[in-house]
Structures are given as C-alpha cells and as structure tokens.
C-alpha cells in the first residue's frame, strides 16, 4: 500500500516537473519573442537567466581579466542578433555560440597584440597562482583541499589548447550534449568526440604530474 502511494507520488512529482519545464520553456519562448520586438525588460530577464552560464563559460575559456567586458559583449551581440534568430528554441545554443565567438575574438586580439604573457597565462591570475603555491603545502583542511583542487582545475584548463579546452568546458563543465557542442563550435560531432578524448587524457596527465591520479 505504501509502495503504491510512493509510486503515485513519484508519478505526480514527475508530471509536475514536466509541466514546470514546459512552462519555463514556453515562458522563455515568449521572452525571446518579446525581445525580438524590442522589449528591453524581457531582455533583462533573459540576461538574469543566462548570465551565470555565459559568465562561467567565458571565465573557463578566457580567465578573469576583462570578464565583465566579455559578458557585456556577448549580451550586446545577442540583442543585436536576436531579430534574426528564427528558431527561438535554440536560443541557448545560439548564446553559447556567441560566447564562443567572443572568446575566440578576444584570443585573436591578444595574439595580435603579441602579448608575451599569452592568452593562457594572461587569463591566469597571479593571485590564484600564489594561492595555488600556498595551498600545495596545506592539504589537510577539507576546504583548503577544495580550493587546491579548484586551482588545479584552473591550471589544467589553461594548460590545454583553446579547442580542447572549449570542448571540455562545454561538455564536461557546462554539461551540454555532444551534438549541441558540435553546433556551437561548428564542427562535426566526430571532431567533438575526438577532441574530448584527447582533452581528457591531457588533463589526466596534467593531474598526474601534480600528484593526482584519477
């Protein structure tokens, strides 16, 4: 009897979740359509909904420097390009694509400037570097261990090439399916798989060099 009740409750919960997901999607579609007509308040809501994901992706790809400017650039491009977006259900993919383009442009700018610190190193904050050095000596406290591992992940990402890093960030950190990653990066799914395989292996090697075996 109790099992039956539990099953019913589970089914109800599933239905409620499905309904809420549908409602969210419908709401988002509506917001996008309003934005396409020039409604700024709807765009503000879209920004609030997506800014964290955009920010996180850009941070993993480009680092801390100019992060606010890059986020701003992504949303300004989105606002400009929204009227041309035909399939509104692909808004998230489209926004990730813009983020990728902005990150790539930033990388090119830095390369043109022949900044000797390079893209990877520039994105690497000195405070974090020092923090990492200090943390390597204090691995006993759990919170500090977490900070240490965060530092390692950051350094490991910076150690990868831009293409490998992008795949790893979008697929493993942002939890996007391979097909969507392929659409964002405009490469075949096979290329995504291949890059992901190599990126993970390189990352594992880096971690092993830092004394961590997974």
């Amino acid at each position: 009897m109790s099992q039956m009740l539990a099953q019913e409750q589970a089914i109800k919960a599933d239905k409620e979740t499905e309904t809420s997901v549908q409602t969210k999607q419908e709401l988002e579609q509506e917001l996008i359509l309003l934005c396409q007509q020039g409604d700024r308040q709807s765009f503000r809501l879209l920004y609030q909904r997506y800014q964290q994901r955009v920010r996180s992706t850009l941070y993993q790809l480009c680092g801390k420097s100019l992060l606010d400017d890059l986020v701003q650039e992504v949303f300004l491009r989105a606002w400009k390009g929204l009227p041309k977006l035909k399939k509104t259900k692909y808004f998230a993919t489209w926004l990730y694509r813009i983020s990728w383009n902005v990150a790539t442009d930033q990388r090119r700018k830095l390369a043109k400037g022949r900044d000797k610190t390079s893209f990877n190193e520039k994105s690497w904050d000195y405070e974090q570097l020092n923090q990492g050095k200090n943390l390597s000596n204090i691995q006993d406290t759990p919170d500090l261990m977490h900070l240490h591992y965060q530092d390692l992940v950051q350094r490991g990402l910076n150690n990868l090439s831009f293409d490998h890093r992008a795949v790893l960030v979008l697929h493993d950190l942002e939890d996007l399916p391979q097909k969507q990653v392929a659409e964002i990066l405009d490469v075949p799914v096979g290329t995504v798989k291949s890059r992901l395989f190599h990126a993970r292996n390189l990352f594992k090697k880096f971690l092993e060099q830092q004394g961590i075996s997974l």
């Binding site: 920010r55 992060l67 965060q150 992940v153 493993d172 993970r200 990352f203």
Partner: peptide
C-alpha cells in the same frame, strides 16, 4: 575525471 572537474571547477568572480 568529469565528476572531479565538475566538483572542483573554479567559480567565476562576481560581476
């Protein structure tokens, strides 16, 4: 590796 990355991914600084 994936779970390690997700668990320890660095958080971006506040805007």
């Amino acid at each position: 590796l994936v779970s390690f990355l997700r668990h320890h991914q660095p958080n971006p600084p506040h805007a």
